[in-house]
Design a binder for these strands. Structure first.
Lengths: 334, 334
DNA sequence: TTGCTTACACGAAACGTTTCGTATAACAGC
DNA sequence: GCTGTTATACGAAACGTTTCGTGTAAGCAA
């Protein structure tokens, strides 16, 4: 493969001059620039990224670590990050943790070996133990997306989750529902807890008591939400509405209701947080509280570049985005 | 950041010895190995991938280039590739072309700059012009997935698309349908043409004439399939069934039918190639011809590693996978 | 002409690895 | 005790860049 040495020889200049001409990093005459550029084109020179990394002490690689790329929510994030990186001449390396902590560490080590310039992490846990373990593996500018992690002192870009929980619950309460079930997240991730808090706050504001039996665990997983919905609806005094704290859990809920031959929204209303790309061909088209995913991803990657390029310290700022209620056909007025 | 020099100093050995101990690349006494490993742990040494790349002339990076990561079909591929890579100590760099040729070239240049060890490409075009342009940018082992490209002499892992087209059409014909519409792909991608050929062959085998008016262009895009379905169903003599050559186009078809207040399968039966992860919460659950996506992705990445690790030449073999009919509720017997 | 500045081109060092040829010590054979 | 062999540790070179200090010719003022 052609090196800059070949370019220099071909253009009849020194290596350092060729480098300066290519990168405009030092004054070079127009004439020489033209010769060098011609040489680059002629021999098809593409700089060796590893050599550049080595010399400059930093690669043009951005790591994006997320729970699962097949979840459309995260795929949308990936697409945005990837585009912005490409434009900036960086390469995005996307990795799914599959919620596996060993795997997460393995990925971080690999990112470290690659000397990535920065990291965007969509965390799977928020607790300090986990944060401490992660902290030791991170040595580059980092932005946390969707949630934060205790003990990881980085910028955060997230949804107003309490607000999202309230928005969904307010809507159901406004429709006259008084027994609203909720599929919760996992204990150790704050996103779910915040959304649940919104659910509780909305009840308090409406003066409606909450029934703890209506809070079923979903762990952000489709299968878990499915199983517990089955149990919930078979128990005495089932709810008239179900609020799924994430889109994956809503799928589980819908599947369970379908198996029970309960129709939505006639028998039970359903709402969730996070929109679906293909909402309109779903059965029924779901009413959701949507997050501005693309805008959030864009903000995260831009914040990251800000820190990388200007070598600025993380402000540890938390940027919260406002959720939006999208009314479709999965909730009915009682 | 700690270097191998620090490891060597800490262990009281030479750099070359430390390297040999870490990589087991030369005989080193047990005693020294122990000392070096302790040093590695103590100072948290992680090898500098760029330096390794530079020295060894190859990176531990695999490029995966696909049309669009937010398409669940491709996301599933990405997940498999990513996992296999991670296990092998490689890093996968996933990039979406968005069917944009300039962008595809830009991505390839970046892959080249990174000196990726290998490439998996899910092509967006099959024609020779495109192949020729791509060929100049590729200098590493490559495997083509889902489709091939004229003039790109690499191994191919794909579905038996003609068979898939036949399978879907046979099924509809067997249900008594005689006017079966089909949303075609793009002219310059062979996948669509093969599937269409299966459609034609099935008709011939059944002795059913095909009506060219029932072949509408879909370009593999949801929006295009949507618009043309609208026109198709409003025209005189509409079909009793629609065969979408891809899952995205089926979404467009379903949306269009929904807008026209036509129900599936009562008014019109619908089938497509490629399954949906969330098929059972769709309206209606679609009957599809599924490809063994995970198995195909696995085969592709393993074939790629075979070529990378054994430095074997591409056999230019075409591995075809057998499609499977999954009957759900979107097709009815006439 | 001389001296000073400017503009540009050059050479060499350094980034962190791996690898290859060489050095040294231990040991066996005679 | 000498030579030959084996086992293991070492030093130096090389991978392809960028960068910094130096060199040189041209331009300008006096």
């Amino acid at each position: 493969m052609a090196t800059i040495k070949d370019v220099a020889k071909h253009a009849g200049v020194a290596i350092s001059t060729a480098s300066a001409a290519i990168n405009r990093s030092a004054p070079v005459s127009e004439e020489v620039i033209a010769k060098v550029e011609a040489a680059v084109r002629d021999i098809g020179y593409v700089p060796h990224a590893a050599a550049q990394s080595l010399r400059m002490g930093q690669s043009r690689l951005i790591g994006l670590i997320l729970p699962d790329i097949t979840n459309p929510h995260f795929a949308n994030v990936a697409r945005v990050v990837e585009s912005v990186c490409l434009e900036a001449g960086y390469m995005a390396a996307v990795y799914s943790t599959n919620e596996d902590f060993d795997r997460e560490r393995q990925i971080l080590r690999m990112m470290r070996a690659q000397r990535v310039a920065g990291l965007i992490i969509i965390p799977t846990r928020s607790d300090a133990t986990h944060g401490a373990r992660l902290a030791g593996e991170i040595h580059v500018p980092t932005v946390l997306l969707d949630s934060y992690v205790d003990g990881l002192p980085y910028d955060v870009v997230k949804l107003d989750n309490v607000g999202a929980g309230r928005l969904a619950t307010d809507y159901l309460l406004g429709l006259g529902h008084r027994r609203i079930a909720v599929t919760t997240g996992r204990d150790n991730i704050i996103t779910g807890e915040d959304r649940l808090q919104g659910y509780l706050e909305a009840h308090a504001a409406f003066g409606v008591p909450v029934d703890p039996n209506l809070q079923i665990t979903g762990k952000f997983l489709q299968a878990v939400a499915h199983d517990n919905t089955l149990a919930l609806m078979r128990a005495p005094a089932p709810p008239t509405a179900i609020f799924a704290l994430s889109n994956m859990m809503m799928l589980g809920v819908l599947n369970a209701l379908r198996e029970l031959k309960l129709s939505v929204p006639e028998d039970v209303s359903v709402i969730c947080i996070d929109d679906f790309d293909y909402a309109n061909i779903m059965n029924p088209p779901p009413t959701v509280v949507a997050a501005p995913v693309a805008k959030m991803a864009q903000t995260a990657i831009e914040q990251l570049f800000e820190e990388i390029l200007n070598k600025s310290q993380p402000t540890m700022a938390v940027r919260e985005f406002v959720p939006e209620l999208i009314i479709r056909e999965s909730c009915r007025r009682l």
